[in-house]
């Protein structure tokens, strides 16, 4: 999961992620690096500053197909969504 270092994660955060999540999640996060990167980049480009927080809390969502992942967020007004996600990262569950 060292590829997460390119997305502003540090070693401690990666270790923490592994410690929190069950191995079957960690394995898939490791296996589907390209997909994770695409979805992470999408959020970052969307302007979601706390994309790291969202990933840490809802990593499994990042294993969705990239187009489906984008559709989850594209339905909403960008600025409004970014603001709301900034205030409440768990909002992604309700999207």
């Amino acid at each position: 999961m060292t590829y997460l270092l390119d997305y502003d994660f540090n070693e401690e955060e990666i270790s923490e992620f592994k410690a929190i999540n069950n191995s079957f999640i960690v394995e898939k996060i490791e296996e589907y690096q390209d997909l994770i990167k695409k979805n992470m980049k999408f959020l970052k480009d969307l302007g979601v500053a706390n994309y790291k927080e969202i990933f840490k809390r809802h990593a499994e969502m990042f294993l969705m197909d990239d187009d489906a992942f984008a559709n989850v967020f594209d339905k909403y007004d960008r600025d409004d969504l970014v603001t709301k996600l900034k205030n409440n990262p768990d909002l992604v569950e309700q999207l």
């Binding site: 079957f24 999640i25 898939k28 499994e60 969502m61 294993l63 969705m64 489906a68 989850v72």
Partner: peptide, 10 residues
């Protein structure tokens, strides 16, 4: 359920 492509399979 499509938001969870791993856990519900495992």
């Amino acid at each position: 359920v499509y938001k969870y492509p791993v856990t519900l399979y495992t």
